[in-house]
């Protein structure tokens, strides 16, 4: 790999921009294909370029059939938006970062944010509807609400339901969750919309402590993403 291609790749990855490196594994020639970059000595045919662009969209690396061309796709960052700088968030945020998520915690209660010791995590002290509007969740975003407080959770869930977020989870018992669904139904969401919300949140691993609950939530997020791609 030529130094200039590698340096451009580093910049794309640091900026969370989707891109791909295509390598002719017999000849050793390469090209970096990004939204606004194209660097390298490998020439691709139109139809090969179309395949590469498809692979970038699907975030799938692999060889192009019947060619020597290997495509390594570097997808944009996965994101996790956590509403509520509560105890579980303190565990969930760093775990999700380890697993490759760019994590943002939204909580207008500054004391919670300070108490949450979230120094390595982006924290917004906006109200959830404002925070969600700033963050614009997309199909590579997971949203989890943890506050139990309808004033904070409901607007975030409504914004998540109006987005393409691939995972929406909401902490609360069966009873709390049923009430929540009733409120969201009154707000005009259909049963099909509400089926997107995982609640009670997380895989059933009999989690008790905040960190165990974080494991169950992160497990459910990973399972949802990987099952959708399988």
């Amino acid at each position: 790999m030529k130094a200039d291609l590698f340096e451009a790749l580093s910049l794309n990855i640091a900026a969370h921009k989707a891109c791909a490196v295509v390598t002719d594994i017999e000849a050793g020639s390469q090209i970096l294909i990004g939204a606004d970059t194209r660097i390298g000595d490998l020439k691709l045919k139109e139809e090969q370029l179309a395949v590469v662009n498809q692979l970038i969209v699907g975030d799938v690396s692999g060889q192009i059939d019947e060619t020597n061309l290997f495509v390594r796709v570097y997808g944009p960052a996965l994101r996790l938006i956590i509403v509520g700088a509560v105890h579980i968030a303190q565990a969930l945020a760093p775990m999700a970062q380890l697993a490759g998520f760019k994590v943002t915690v939204i909580d207008p209660r500054e004391a919670f944010v300070r108490a949450g010791r979230l120094s390595e995590v982006e924290a917004l002290t906006d109200w959830p509807n404002e925070g969600m509007h700033k963050l614009q969740p997309d199909s590579r975003t997971a949203v989890v609400t943890l506050t139990h407080d309808p004033k904070l959770d409901d607007p975030a869930l409504a914004a998540a339901l109006r987005s393409k977020a691939f995972y929406i989870g909401s902490l609360g018992s069966n009873r709390t969750h049923a009430k929540r669904l009733a409120r969201l139904t009154e707000d005009g969401f259909s049963e099909r919309d509400l089926d997107r919300i995982h609640g009670p949140v997380g895989l059933d691993i009999k989690a008790k402590t905040p960190s165990e609950i974080a494991v169950s939530i992160l497990g459910e997020i990973v399972a949802t993403r990987r099952r959708a791609a399988a």
């Binding site: 130094a3 590698f6 340096e7 790749l9 580093s10 990855i13 945020a93 760093p94 775990m95 970062q97 380890l98 697993a99 490759g100 998520f101 390595e120």
Partner: peptide, 17 residues
């Protein structure tokens, strides 16, 4: 907390720099 899956390219970038 560091993304362990991104680690190899981050380290490569450091060494290269």
């Amino acid at each position: 907390m560091h993304n362990v899956d991104a680690d190899p390219l981050d380290r490569l970038t450091e060494w290269h720099a």
